[in-house]
């Protein structure tokens, strides 16, 4: 950015596609979950949001997609800007229409609908012709050939990996510009995970979809992203280009399980040291 003071409009292609500025989230009016998180996702980028269970990754994504409102959560401070527009007054449906789609943790397929019905519902917000929808469906099947074989099966009965594919495919049907992808690795075998991350990479390259990827699997997430944020206790404690984070000794020790003295588990890390280094 050349001039930080100029407001970025929707047509300004230079600003980030998404930015969250110092957002604070409170659940049930009392529980402070996010304590001032700032992050941004550049146009065409894959940004990783890392951290342990309960660090606030999912809450951050839900705050961005506005699904939080339905769960007694509330953004009490800060702002979220998507494509140059402040999103505060928009509904989740408005955001999907603008191309910001979330793939939730745990897949959340419509279990009693067939795979194809799941995918078709992904295009709910699109007012497009039958032919256009068909074309997008074919494209989705091209990315996920397994889903074509399972198209008439109820989504509740397909495998976890296929459900993850259905969830991503369903988001793809909305013709997204940005996907908030929450914990795709959950419960998946490494080989499947590699397949899914491979597709994420392709969607990023070929469809120009940007990703904000929340992951506990730090290794895989850093490998497939350009930039990463590490979240701990509702705060960003570290950020940087993904290669740098991979090389960082703290990340290695606490998230990748590689200490200076060889392999070590997260459990062995001295708790006081982590706090001292990152929170002081």
């Amino acid at each position: 950015m050349t001039d930080a003071t100029t407001a970025t409009g929707p047509d300004d292609a230079s600003g980030p596609l998404l930015s969250a500025n110092n957002i604070e989230v409170v659940y049930n009016r009392v529980i402070l979950v996010l304590k001032g998180v700032s992050l941004s996702v550049p146009r065409g980028g894959i940004t990783a949001l890392l951290g342990a269970n309960g660090a606030g990754k999912t809450t951050t994504l839900k705050a961005i997609s506005h699904i939080l409102k339905g769960e007694r959560g509330e953004v009490t401070r800060g702002s979220i800007v998507y494509d140059g527009t402040e999103t505060e007054s928009l509904t989740p449906s408005d955001l999907v229409r603008k191309g910001l789609v979330q793939v939730m943790e745990g897949r959340h397929c419509f279990e009693h609908l067939t795979v194809e019905e799941n995918l078709l519902l992904g295009a709910y917000t699109r007012s497009e012709s039958r032919a256009e929808r068909r074309e997008q469906l074919d494209k989705t099947y091209a990315y996920f050939p397994r889903l074509r074989d399972r198209r008439h099966t109820q989504a509740g009965y397909i495998s976890g990996g296929e459900q993850q594919m259905t969830a991503i495919g369903r988001a793809l049907m909305a013709r997204p510009r940005m996907i908030l992808l929450d914990e795709p690795s959950m419960g998946l075998a490494p080989q499947l995970l590699a397949e899914i991350f491979g597709i994420v990479d392709r969607l990023n390259r070929e469809e120009k979809v940007s990703f904000l990827l929340a992951e506990q699997n730090t290794h895989a997430a850093l490998k497939h992203s350009d930039y990463g944020y590490i979240l701990e206790n509702g705060r960003v404690v570290m950020e940087g280009a993904s290669e740098q984070l991979t090389e960082n000794s703290d990340v290695k020790e606490f998230y990748l399980g590689l200490g200076e003295s060889g392999r070590r588990g997260f459990r062995d890390a001295k708790h006081y040291r982590r706090r001292k280094r990152w929170l002081s």
Partner: peptide, 13 residues
């Protein structure tokens, strides 16, 4: 009927 949250996440009001 199946999943409120999933419906929200793909923009069904």
């Amino acid at each position: 009927a199946d999943d409120h949250q999933a419906a929200l996440s793909i923009g069904i009001p």
